[in-house]
């Protein structure tokens, strides 16, 4: 049988997918052992047990200085910033993108501006944000918004324009006015597409969040990583990176499940068109 026709069984598929992770962990443990055997104080590749004790300290013992459980405090702060930034961006993107896509006069007016804004590198204006909004929460949230809102707006506009003209004509023959078409024909069809776009923009949102936290913050996952870098604390940095990756995975998975539950018609439509999620 040709290779392109051989499909793995379900357990084999899981096993094959899991294997690279196991190999990476094994390689790490091996290398770590080797270095620690030469120098027990080596900081570059700490052993698993060292990471566990460091994380236990951060997660389950209150900090001596503030009394907080630092790991959970960092997670909460970062997730709050991320949720605010992504949530506000999604709302802006949905409203402006939808209206832009639906109403040619507004599109002619706003589209060039949004294209221009989308080209500004957000990190380059981070100092401006710090000057205007100070070093508090606002500037971090605003950085995420500036980073991803233009992308969401443009994508929502494109998705709105993709809805077949036949549907808009049909709605008009059923006596719908512009507002009714926005509300009942376009908006409900755009919402699952918004979830898709948010999932795509989350990667960028994490980048902006961690960058902002690295530069000015007093807590947060990005703040902690850049703080302990001074002490070469790989035993904290590595678990934090794994944790951030896991959170990113979890959020993406949640959004996908929510979308499938709320919009079954959308996902079967996509399946028919041969797209994948």
């Amino acid at each position: 049988m040709r290779l392109i026709n051989r499909h793995p069984s379900r357990p084999l598929k899981w096993l094959l997918g899991f294997l690279p992770f196991v190999i990476i962990v094994m390689v790490y443990i091996g290398a770590s052992h080797q270095r620690l055997a030469e120098n027990p104080n080596d900081k570059l590749l700490p052993g698993i047990s060292k990471m566990v004790t460091s994380m236990e300290r951060l997660a389950f013992e209150p900090s001596k200085r503030s009394g907080d459980y630092l790991f959970w405090q960092d997670t909460l702060s970062s997730l709050q910033r991320l949720a605010m930034g992504v949530g506000i961006s999604a709302l802006i993107g949905l409203v402006i993108g939808l209206i832009n896509g639906a109403i040619p006069l507004v599109r002619a007016n706003l589209s060039p501006l949004i294209t221009a804004i989308a080209l500004v590198p957000p990190m380059a204006i981070l100092p401006i944000l710090f000057i205007i909004f100070g070093l508090g929460e606002v500037s971090k949230v605003v950085l995420i918004i500036i980073g991803i809102a233009p992308f969401i707006i443009r994508d929502m506009q494109a998705r709105t324009l993709e809805i077949p003209a036949e549907q808009l004509i049909k709605a008009q023959t059923l006596t719908a006015n512009t507002w009714q078409i926005l509300l009942r024909v376009l908006l409900p069809q755009i919402l699952p597409r918004l979830l898709d776009t948010v999932r795509l923009s989350l990667g960028a949102a994490w980048i902006f969040l961690i960058a902002a936290e690295a530069i000015a913050a007093t807590d947060g996952l990005g703040y902690r990583i850049f703080l302990v870098r001074r002490y070469l604390s790989m035993d904290v940095i590595l678990p934090y990176v794994v944790w951030i990756t896991f959170l990113a995975f979890l959020i993406d998975w949640l959004l996908r499940i929510i979308s499938q539950r709320l919009y079954p018609w959308y996902h079967s439509q996509k399946a028919v068109q041969g797209q994948t999620t």
């Binding site: 549907q167 049909k170 023959t173 409900p188 069809q189 919009y263 018609w265 959308y266 439509q269």
Partner: peptide
């Protein structure tokens, strides 16, 4: 109007 396709609302 009835078109050949896309006439109904998929949602």
């Amino acid at each position: 109007i009835v078109f050949q396709r896309y006439s109904v609302f998929p949602h």
